[in-house]
Write a protein that binds this DNA or RNA. Structure first.
Lengths: 208, 208
DNA sequence: CACTAAAACGGAGGCGCCTCCGTTTATTAC
DNA sequence: GTAATAAACGGAGGCGCCTCCGTTTTAGTG
């Protein structure tokens, strides 16, 4: 009876308002995500969490405090990678003519998917389970793509009668294509083909 | 060079022709499936396989020889249970008037689903992964149901303007209903309701 | 019956999962 | 600076997974 808890639970800051972590905690968390990204890419989503903790130089307990389940960690890594893919769009747009930026970005998209191929099944389960995740991420990607395309259209370097969803649809074929040995080459060729098509008739409608 | 394997692999008996197991192997296998069915019902599909082996009185190695992955075991148990549900249809048809048989069978169906509720997620993953399984099983179930219904219609104890797929559709609601506390009661009521509807206008079309 | 080859058994061992809790560290107040 | 406290750390421990391989059992054969 000596010390009482402070009256009632009073502060409910907000669902999204993550309170700032202590400096060391933040540092460890960042390292964990970094290492996990590499590990998942190398060994799939079943990579050993103990190994990840070890490589991050923290105890397994620390890993579990930050990410209570494997799926939490996978989700964070996945979000981060999609984020960086989208950020690359802005990056490219700054330093290249719009059509080049678009092409480069699609190449990165292929590379990105390439690293996820092995994880397809596990990721699909995760995306089924957590449907917010899927819509969030595909929304982000299609926004990035849309901006690239609109810029290229405005610049007159690609035709104007296409939009992001058309191109995304075409890229979708990359994702669902069978996992053959020459997948990557074929995908690159598809991107080139797509770009040729987009550039053809630049500055006017395709109707002519 | 002393002993050669017999020329070429010669006998390809048939995909479905499972070679007969040695007596002890068959015995162990049966016990394992039996025990696993109970364990999965009690603890979900994540039940400890070592515990199952222990209760079956065999080594863990034996379990893994018979069922190389957890999913194999789950699938066999699942098939067996659907099988027995369908067999119950014949059973009931022999010993009851057709409409009673139908009603009783639907009650069993509810009970059966009840034991599977907790496993919904895992099972759904399994069914997604192994789509043959799903179509096989729902085919078996709807066949059993169809026979019960046709018998009852022929006997004149339920109306004649319904078929198995209508009823199956109605029962489908049971499966996908939210997992509330009174789920079982509600499902039983649904079955009663359904039977009343089916009996109403027995021997003639519902049009009148 | 005895003998043999093939089939099946079973559990030790190595690894990963995850929890729990005693220890350490960053932060805040003085 | 020091003290106090909440936050974070980390690894031991218990359990389950799955493989591997020496031992046992079965089903033929003479």
């Amino acid at each position: 009876m000596a010390s009482q808890p402070p009256a009632i639970a009073r502060d409910k800051p907000d669902a999204t308002a993550a309170k700032p972590l202590r400096a060391d905690a933040q540092r460890n968390r960042d390292v964990l995500v970094e290492v996990a990204a590499v590990a998942f890419a190398a060994h799939g989503v079943d990579a050993s969490l103990e190994e990840i903790a070890r490589q991050a130089g923290v105890g397994i307990g620390t890993l579990y405090r930050h990410f209570p389940t494997r799926e939490h960690l996978v989700e964070v890594v996945y979000r981060r990678e999609v984020e960086s893919l989208c950020a690359a769009a802005d990056e490219l747009a700054l330093h290249h003519p719009p059509d080049i930026a678009l092409e480069q970005w699609m190449r990165r998209f292929v590379d990105y998917i390439a690293t996820k191929r092995g994880l397809a099944t596990s990721l699909r389960i995760l995306l089924n389970t957590n449907s917010t995740l899927f819509s969030d991420m595909s929304g982000r990607v299609s926004l990035a793509l849309r901006q690239l395309i609109e810029a290229a259209v405005a610049h007159g370097s690609i035709r104007s009668d296409v939009d992001a969803s058309d191109v995304l649809h075409a890229l979708g074929g990359i994702y669902s294509a069978p996992d053959t040995e020459d997948w990557r080459d074929r995908s690159r060729r598809l991107v080139s083909l797509l770009m040729d098509g987009l550039r053809f008739g630049a500055g006017r409608s395709a109707k002519g």
